[in-house]
Amino acid sequence: MDQLLHHLRHLGFTEMESKIMVELARQGSGSGYEVAKRLGVSRSNVYATLQRLEQRGFLRCSPGEPAKYSMLKPEEMTRMISDQMHSSLAYVERSMPKSEPEKPVFYNIEGDKNVFENLGRELAAAKHEIVVDVWREEAELLREDMQRAEARGVRLLWSCEGGEGALDQPMPLPGLPISGTGRKFSLVVDRRWCMLGMRGNSCPTQAVVTEHPVMTGLLLSHFAQDLVLYELEQDMGRELENRYGRRYADIAARYWSSFSPEEQ
């Protein structure tokens, strides 16, 4: 009984409507006076509810004095409710105002506490993959968050500049010099959210955060290129170094020097 009333209310009927419908279905038919007496409620409330249910088509009313009310068969009632709900859902789908989706935004975060709190929330919410490109100092600060994510089954891809020992099996990759005295870091979570920032020495901790697909795509592409170069270096070793110089410095110098801030 209670479960039936619960589901009727879930379908949009009031508590009084639900009780009257169940009572009429049990008894077959009844007048307003009889229903009110069996339910122990006021006749005025019952009469008003019976009239409302009849107008909506869920009750039949027989002529005579007093009028007798009866419920539809259960399959008729549920079919009527289903048709009404489908009609309403179709109307809502057609008529609901449609707005353009919000464009991804960029926002800045400053200060160690703010940057790492923001980052910690995203790492804790990661479901599929985390891509990390950091220096040894930042890797140590993120160690526990990344280990917890990996324990949840999140795929972890990372590279670490500045020496070994930050995490198990670190992967130092070829890098280019950057302006300023800080250490750059970047992270991409689930290929939708990313943070790119700088920290350390005399450089205040600052980061840019966005879900813009262009930025996440650029960071993932840069990371993949570094991995390719790393694997080539591991595979070709001395031959690659002899031809292009350690860490490909000869090649990098051709392009990076033309963008050096000191020469601008």
Rank of each mutant, 00 (worst) to 15 (best):
D2L: 14
Q3S: 12
R9D: 05
H10M: 14
T14H: 00
T14A: 03
M16N: 07
E17L: 04
S18P: 05
S18N: 02
K19E: 08
V22C: 07
S29I: 00
G32L: 00
E34A: 13
V41F: 04
Y47T: 12
T49P: 07
L50Y: 05
Q51F: 08
R52Q: 13
L53H: 02
C61P: 04
P66V: 09
A67T: 03
S70E: 05
E75Q: 07
E76A: 09
M77G: 06
R79D: 14
S82A: 15
M85V: 12
H86P: 06
H86T: 14
H86S: 15
S88F: 10
Y91P: 02
V92E: 10
E93A: 13
R94A: 15
M96K: 09
E100L: 14
P101Y: 02
K103I: 13
F106K: 15
N108S: 15
N108I: 14
K113F: 11
F116L: 09
F116D: 06
N118K: 07
L119P: 11
L123Q: 03
A125V: 01
K127H: 01
K127T: 02
V132F: 04
V134N: 05
W135I: 08
R136H: 12
E137N: 06
A139Q: 04
L141T: 04
E144F: 05
D145W: 04
R148W: 02
E150Q: 15
A151D: 04
G153Y: 03
G153P: 03
S159I: 11
G163P: 10
Q169I: 11
Q169K: 11
L173Q: 14
P174I: 12
P174L: 11
P177N: 02
G182R: 02
L187P: 03
L187A: 04
R191C: 05
R191A: 05
W193K: 00
C194W: 00
C194V: 00
C194Q: 01
M195D: 03
V208K: 10
H212P: 10
P213L: 00
T216I: 02
S221P: 09
S221L: 10
H222E: 10
Q225D: 10
Y230A: 13
E233K: 09
D235V: 10
M236D: 11
M236V: 14
M236P: 09
R238V: 07
R238Q: 07
R238A: 07
E239G: 13
N242H: 13
R243H: 13
Y244E: 08
A249N: 05
I251L: 15
I251H: 14
I251V: 15
A252Y: 13
P261Y: 02
E263V: 13
